[in-house]
Design a protein around this nucleic acid. Structure first.
Lengths: 202, 202
DNA sequence: TCATTTTTTTAGTTCTACTGCAATTATCTT
DNA sequence: AAGATAATTGCAGTAGAACTAAAAAAATGA
C-alpha cells in the first residue's frame, strides 16, 4: 500500500490519522458515532486513526462528512517563514502586459496561499475580463476603482472593499482622472502562473 | 467502492479524475510520463482519469507528486457568491474579549478561505500571543503597530505590511498614543472558531 | 471498586486497486 | 492521403489491502 512513496508523501498520509482523531475528539464523538455515520466499523476507524490502515477515497470522504469536514482538510501541508514588507523599501514593478505599477507585499512559504499586492492603476487603465481559480479581496486605499464581476459593475471608493470568487468573470478599470491605489489580496493559484513573473492581479 | 456516499461526496470524487487529467494536459505530459514518475501503469492512470477506478491514497499521492501538485489540490470544492463592502455601511463590532473595534470586509462562499477585517486598535491595547492554523497578512493603514512573531518584535508604520504563518507564535500591540487602523486578511481555519462569533484576529 | 462505554486486537474475507497486454485512436511526417 | 509511431483505452485477470465481526483490553464514570 505504501509503495512508491517518497518521504514527503509519507508524512502527508501519516498526518491523516492524527487529524481524523483530533477532529473527532474536538467534536467529542466516539468511534462508534463516527463509524455509524460514515457507514464503516469502529475497528476500521481506529485502525485508520492509528495509521494501521489507509482508507479508500470513498471511505475517507464518508468519514470526513461524518466529521463535518472536507476531505481536502486532512491533507494540509506544513507551513513556514515570514516577511515584513516596508512601504519605503519596496520595489515598484510594471505589470507584465504593461499599464499599471505594483508592489509586492506578501511573502511565500510552504503551504502559503495569500498573495498581497499594492497596485497603482493609472487613469483610464483597464484590465480585461478574466476567470481563474482562487478568490480575491480588494481594498481601495486611494481613489475610486470600477470593478465588474459577473457583469455587475461596481464603483469602489476609498475604504470600500470587495471579496469574490475568481472563477466569476471579472475586470477592473480606473475611470477617474487620477491614479487609484488598491490593496489586492488573493489566494495562490497552484495551477496558475509562476510567481516569479509578474502577477496576473485578478 | 462508492458505497455509503451521499451526493455531495460523489461529486468530490468525480472531480478527481477530471482534475488529474486537466493538470496533466496543462503540463503537456503523457500518461506514460506520469505513470513512470508515479510508479503505476498508464492503464491505471487512464482509468482513474476517466473515473473507472479510484486510486488508493498512496497512489494518488504519488500521482499528485508526479504532477507537481499536492493531493489536497484535487479535492477543492466549488465556490460561489460575492459581496462588496462599503466603508460607510459597515457595522463596527467590539471584539469578543473587549478592547478593540473591527469591521468585517470579506464575505464567505463555499470554498472561500479569505477573511478580511479592518481593525482599530486603541492606544496601549495588546493582543496576547497565540498560535493557530492558517496564515495572516497585515497592512497598516494608519498609525504604527507593533507585532511580535516568533519572539521577533517589529514596528510597522503606515503602508507597511507583514505576512506570516499563523502557526508561529504571534502577538499584537499598539504602543502609541493614537488609534491604529490595520487591514487584516487571513485564511479561514476550518477547525477554528465559528465565524458568526467575533473574530480571533490573529 | 464495579459497571459500562470505548477502543484495540485479531483473524479473517471479499472486492477492488492495479497489472499486463492487446486493440484502438490520435498524432505526426512524408 | 497513407503510413508509422505515439498515446490511450479496453479487457481479463489477481494479489493484497480495505474493511468486517467479534472478542479482549483499556478507559471512563458513578
Amino acid at each position: 500500500m505504501l509503495k512508491n512513496m517518497n518521504e514527503h508523501t509519507i508524512e502527508d498520509v501519516a498526518d491523516l490519522g492524527s487529524k481524523l482523531r483530533r477532529r473527532r475528539k474536538e467534536l467529542g464523538l466516539t468511534l462508534e458515532a463516527v463509524a455509524k455515520e460514515a457507514g464503516v466499523t469502529t475497528g476500521f476507524i481506529s485502525q485508520v486513526e492509528r495509521k494501521i490502515t489507509s482508507p479508500s477515497l470513498a471511505s475517507l470522504t464518508a468519514m470526513a462528512d461524518a466529521l463535518g469536514a472536507h476531505i481536502a482538510d486532512f491533507f494540509d501541508p506544513p507551513p513556514k517563514p515570514e516577511e515584513t514588507s516596508r512601504a519605503k523599501m519596496r520595489e515598484i514593478y510594471a505589470s507584465p502586459g504593461g499599464g499599471f505599477d505594483f508592489e509586492r507585499l506578501s511573502t511565500s512559504f510552504d503551504g502559503s496561499t495569500l498573495n498581497g499586492l499594492l497596485v497603482h492603476h493609472p487613469p483610464g487603465f483597464v484590465i480585461a475580463e478574466m476567470v481563474h481559480e482562487g478568490e480575491e479581496f480588494y481594498y481601495v486605499i486611494k481613489g475610486a476603482l470600477t470593478m465588474t464581476v459577473d457583469g455587475v459593475r461596481t464603483v469602489l471608493g476609498a475604504g470600500d472593499s470587495i471579496h469574490f470568487d475568481s472563477m466569476r468573470p471579472h475586470s477592473v478599470q480606473n475611470e477617474t482622472g487620477e491614479t487609484v491605489t488598491v490593496l489586492v489580496v488573493n489566494t495562490m493559484d497552484l495551477f496558475g502562473e509562476d510567481r516569479e513573473e509578474g502577477p496576473p492581479h485578478g
